[in-house]
């Protein structure tokens, strides 16, 4: 079993528990162990695009530094820190590129880190879990572990922005990605392509400009359902929250609106690999996927009355 230093980020412990638990479960099936970094801190999302703000870069560098220390305690661990959240992935990748390009910035950040007796040597690679699945495990290896192909699930991949932007952080071609598509197919689900696969959900505007998010989500869901999708697959807890929660609000407002459930890619994997349903934490979803999954016979009917 290969051990990876794993950086969860805040949301995986709060409103995306299903994401984390399913990821840890399926990775074990695939001979991968995600070992959580002890005493990790917030990555400092979203990454600053200023050229002159050192403060906003300290948190992500500290994550890299702690991960490095963590890796030294693991066995047979590649020099990589793995993330699940695409915003964490983006932030850490960008900062890692920035400090590798600019020793001066790194020195200044390290000066700040010294209080914590940490220095970063710019010697660690940031990987999103999807990259591990694609490049180290392989889709074939995933297919082999599928015990319950997701027949009848028509899944539209929604990348959001941060898996594909910017250049430094992207895990796939930014205009023609195929990692989620290949994964969905290897799980036996039907693939539904939507042109709005990276149409921004409105992100952090949910805090004070909800109208922006709601109009974005409406378009994203409409584009997918019009093409026959009955589910979306995502890799970002914020995309997931925005789309999920807004759909619920829209369904309340308009009877004609048909919401579709949202899955993290690891949830689909867990379902297909026959993991217990409860690790998905479907109860926390705004649009509960269970009725659809039951209808398709993908989860047991035991609980239905």
């Amino acid at each position: 079993m290969v051990q990876y230093s794993y950086f969860p980020g805040c949301n995986l412990k709060t409103n995306a528990k299903g994401f984390e638990e399913t990821a840890i479960a399926v990775s074990k099936k695939l001979n991968v162990e995600l070992v959580e970094i002890p005493n990790w801190n917030c990555c400092g999302t979203v990454h600053t695009m200023t050229s002159d703000n050192i403060m906003k870069r300290i948190a992500p560098v500290r994550v890299l530094s702690r991960s490095k220390k963590h890796i030294e305690t693991l066995e047979e661990s590649p020099n990589q820190v793995v993330t699940l959240c695409s915003m964490c992935n983006s932030t850490l990748k960008i900062v890692s590129k920035e400090v590798s390009d600019n020793q001066d910035t790194l020195d200044k950040i390290n000066y700040q880190l010294e209080d914590d007796e940490l220095t970063y040597e710019n010697d660690i690679e940031v990987k999103h879990f999807l990259e591990i699945l694609r490049d180290s495990v392989g889709y074939e290896g995933i297919s082999k572990k599928v015990v319950k192909p997701l027949k009848g699930l028509k899944v539209s991949p929604y990348y959001g922005c941060m898996l594909l932007h910017p250049e430094e952080a992207k895990i796939d071609d930014e205009e023609m990605p195929d990692v989620l598509e290949s994964l969905v197919e290897s799980l036996g689900a039907e693939l539904v392509m939507s042109p709005l696969f990276k149409y921004c959900c409105g992100s952090y505007h949910i805090v004070d400009q909800e109208n922006i998010v709601s109009s974005q989500v409406e378009k994203i869901v409409e584009a997918a359902t019009r093409r026959g999708a009955n589910a979306l697959v995502v890799a970002c807890p914020l995309c997931s929250y925005n789309i999920d929660q807004q759909q619920k609000a829209m369904a309340k407002e308009s009877a004609g609106f048909k919401p579709i459930p949202i899955f993290y890619f690891t949830q689909l994997m867990a379902l297909a690999m026959g993991e217990p349903v409860k690790i998905n934490h479907f109860k926390e979803h705004f649009i509960n996927p269970e009725p659809l999954l039951k209808e398709l016979g993908l989860i047991g009917r035991k609980k239905t009355k």
Partner: peptide, 21 residues
């Protein structure tokens, strides 16, 4: 910001928003 908003929103949204605004 209303307490309700702060409580229900994921921390990722709050952190990102505050860092931008």
């Amino acid at each position: 910001l209303p307490k309700k908003v702060l409580e229900k929103l994921p921390n990722i949204a709050l952190v990102a928003n505050f860092r931008k605004k």
